[in-house]
Structure formats: C-alpha cells, structure tokens
Design a binder for these strands. Structure first.
Length: 197
DNA sequence: GTAAAGATCCACT
DNA sequence: GTGGATCTTTACT
C-alpha cells in the first residue's frame, strides 16, 4: 500500500472527487490504524461555487483552513453537534475541496462501534454519512490544517483498487446554492452498501 | 449584542 | 415521512 504524495492533491476538486473513490483513508488512534475505503464524495469548487464556504473568496476565522495547500484537512462543525471532513485540493488560492460523504470500514469494526453510541448495530450505520464517519473515526476540529501527505494521524493510501462503475449526480442538501446546486459534483461507487441517502 | 441558519442525524408517528 | 436536537459561525443592528 502506497501513501499518496503531495502532488496528487494538486488537481481540481472535480477530478479528485472522482479519483479518490476507492482510495483508503487511514486514521491512527491509540497506535491502531483504522482503514476505510472512500466510497462517496462531493466536489466543492471554492471561490466560484455558490455551495462552497469559500464562495467569492470569503475569509473568516473558520475558513482559514480552506486556504491551505493541497492535501490539508478542513473540518467544520455543523448544526452545533456534528463534524464534516473536507480535503483541500489544487491551488490554495482557489480553496477547492473534496467533501467525504461516506466510507466503507475495512478493519477494527468494534472500535468504530464504540466510538458511535447509537442503537443501530448495523455496520452500514457506522460510516454511511459525512458526520457519522467523523464520529466513528474521531475526526474533529483538532485535525484542522493537518496535511495528509505528511501526517501520521490521518492520511490516504492506494492499494491499487479501482471501482468498476462510478455514478455522478447532484450534491445533497445545498438548496441555498441556487444555480450551482444542480451540478453533477457528487460521486459514488455504484452498488456499494455504504452510500448515504 | 442579537438573531438566524446550517455540506446532519436520530427517534418517532 | 417528519420534527427536534443543539450550538457554532456569521451577518447585521
């Protein structure tokens, strides 16, 4: 298994959102390496995308981590209770990012289960949503600004797997984005059980 | 200082 | 299918 180099992240969000499907997200917790395959993503095109936090190049305190070099992690809190994981890509001025919506756990399912105290014991409910996977992998604001190309706590590797078929569709829950909401910037692996609704 | 909304999830009818 | 949780961040007075 090979870690993806810094240069990998210097492509557009649209290209990488699709390319990252099938790659493995590694999260180190207590000397244990949790492996999850990325199965669903969305592209956010930064300053030119009405759905993006960086639309029109807005800078606020929270958004500083979007204006980082490719491979940086951008975690933000939503609805006061949850977190969402983004990977900053391309040139840092454009503030593009890939939003990780769902992953498929490959090992240590018991650990993920412990991290997410909910009634459902179904495996799919562990990571089939952007905030679910953050809970299961303990991804929070402390990871903000970390770079996947150099960190040991969280990074991406490839095992050579390539999805058979990829579905392109509209992004979810971004009605506020008006004319940008219909762009086909959501990607997922067809037939995978862990796709969010 | 105050108010409003949100790249979601869960429980319940 | 629907509503409530819950609080950070942002925008505006």
């Amino acid at each position: 298994m090979k870690r993806l180099p810094k240069s990998y992240y210097h492509q557009t969000a649209i290209k990488l959102a699709e390319e990252m499907l099938g790659k493995i997200l590694v999260r180190k917790l207590n000397k244990t390496y949790l492996h999850c395959r990325i199965v669903e993503t969305e592209a956010y095109m930064g300053t030119v995308d009405k759905a993006s936090h960086a639309y029109k190049g807005k800078h606020t305190k929270r958004k500083m981590n979007l204006y980082q070099p490719g491979g940086s992690v951008y975690v933000y809190s939503i609805y006061g209770i949850y977190y969402c994981l983004n990977i900053v890509v391309n040139d840092q001025k454009s503030a593009e990012s890939v939003f990780i919506r769902a992953v498929e756990p490959l090992n240590h399912l018991d650990t993920l289960q412990q991290n997410r105290p909910v009634k459902s014991k179904k495996t799919v409910d562990l990571t089939n949503g952007p905030s679910k996977l953050c809970q299961a992998l303990i991804i929070d604001k402390s990871l903000n600004g970390i770079n996947l190309a150099t960190s040991d706590d969280i990074f991406l590797v490839s095992d050579g797997y390539h999805p058979d078929r990829i579905v392109k569709t509209q992004r979810i829950n971004i009605d506020y984005a008006k004319e940008d909401k219909d762009n086909l910037w959501r990607f997922y692996i067809k037939g995978n059980d862990f796709i969010s609704k």
